[in-house]
């Protein structure tokens, strides 16, 4: 049995900018055809990793392989990857069709063939009728599609996307999430998707790598990242989860470790705590209505601890700041994490 080489492999990759370690000893493997997200706050090293794959930047140490081929010294134009840039980077002096055909043009594909293939790529992103326009005449969403078509027309084996949806409004962003995912399934190309939006990463990816301060904190399928965070950074950043210090967790009969606790797992009690639940008295600081859910921000009495509680909007319409409530914490919902 032959094992296919991973689409992208990082081996102890480090990138320093002077004293700053933008990427600090990253190991990862991205499978062919995988939708892989790099998630993290700005400055966490995810975009630098993308630029290292594209070849715009070179690692200070470590190795990057693309389909088993070491990429050291390979210039960007000789790599089997293409990039969709955050600002789209469309050529302002060319029309849309020539923008999309650019990669074919510089490789010497004849005019008729490259225009035919560019038109196909535009049709793929549902922009078939805009070939004659200039980029400035398009909306943000349309430019984004042109950038996508321009990368895909070269049939890359890995497509790199640098926060491609960041500049779009919410509705368009959700539409594009669905379309990107469908496109990726159809083409079978590995997508490496950089984002700081956890919802985006969770909803589209096969696997997510969570970055913090130049390192990968956790990598795994979205469910695992969301439900079983490895550190409190992942818990807070990915899911807006509550983090209970080890002392509090131990005090209510849970594990002797910092624990994550999802806001929707907490219930409000009116009587004694049911089996498997610990009761905590807390005061409401703020109550927010979010449509489907109601979010309470509470302070636990006797502990310096604030928790977010999410309850169905139909319950507890009468809650307001200053009120005291009893929280039921299901011990089974406490997920023990590594001490920071």
């Amino acid at each position: 049995m032959t094992v296919a080489a991973p689409a992208v492999r990082f081996r102890a990759v480090t990138r320093h900018f002077g004293p700053v370690k933008a990427v600090d000893g990253v190991d990862l493997e991205i499978a062919p055809g995988e939708f892989f997200s790099m998630l993290g706050p700005s400055g966490s090293g995810k975009t630098t990793c993308l630029r290292l794959i594209a070849g715009f930047d070179q690692p200070s140490a470590g190795e990057i392989e693309i389909f088993g081929v070491p990429s050291a010294g390979v210039p960007p134009y000789a790599r089997a990857v293409n990039t969709v840039f955050q600002d789209y980077a469309l050529f302002p002096h060319m029309n849309v069709l020539d923008n999309v055909a650019y990669g074919l043009m510089v490789r010497g594909v004849g005019k008729r063939e490259r225009h035919a293939r560019a038109a196909e790529a535009l049709a793929l992103v549902k922009l078939g009728q805009h070939g004659e326009r200039r980029p400035v005449q398009l909306s943000g969403g349309q430019r984004q599609r042109v950038a996508l078509a321009r990368a895909l027309v070269n049939q890359p084996r890995v497509l790199l996307l640098d926060e491609p949806l960041g500049a779009l409004d919410l509705k368009l962003r959700e539409e594009m999430q669905v379309e990107l995912k469908a496109l990726q399934r159809k083409l079978g190309t590995a997508f490496v998707f950089v984002t700081h939006d956890q919802g985006e990463a969770l909803s589209m990816s096969d696997r997510v790598a969570v970055f913090n301060e130049g390192r990968i904190v956790q990598v795994g399928p979205p469910e695992e990242i969301y439900e079983r965070p490895r550190t409190d950074f992942v818990a807070r950043f990915v899911g807006g989860s509550n983090v209970l210090p080890a002392a509090v967790a131990r005090g209510i009969g849970g594990p002797d470790a910092p624990c994550s606790l999802r806001p929707e797992a907490i219930v409000l009690l009116t009587g004694p705590a049911p089996e498997g639940h610990a009761a905590l008295t807390a005061m409401i600081e703020d109550a927010q209505y979010h449509g489907a859910a109601r979010r309470l921000l509470v302070t636990v009495e006797g502990a310096d601890l604030r928790l977010a509680v999410s309850i169905p909007a139909a319950e507890g319409g009468g809650f307001g700041p200053g009120q005291t409530v009893t929280l039921g914490i299901p011990l089974a919902a406490l997920w023990a994490m590594e001490a920071a």
């Binding site: 980077a89 050529f91 650019y102």
Partner: peptide
């Protein structure tokens, strides 16, 4: 990023100058 985009799409330094930088 225009220059990077050009390189990313397969253009070498000379092609990037000829087709992207010079027209701009």
């Amino acid at each position: 990023s225009l220059v990077e985009a050009s390189m990313d799409l397969g253009a070498d330094g000379f092609q990037t100058f000829r087709y992207v930088i010079l027209p701009n």
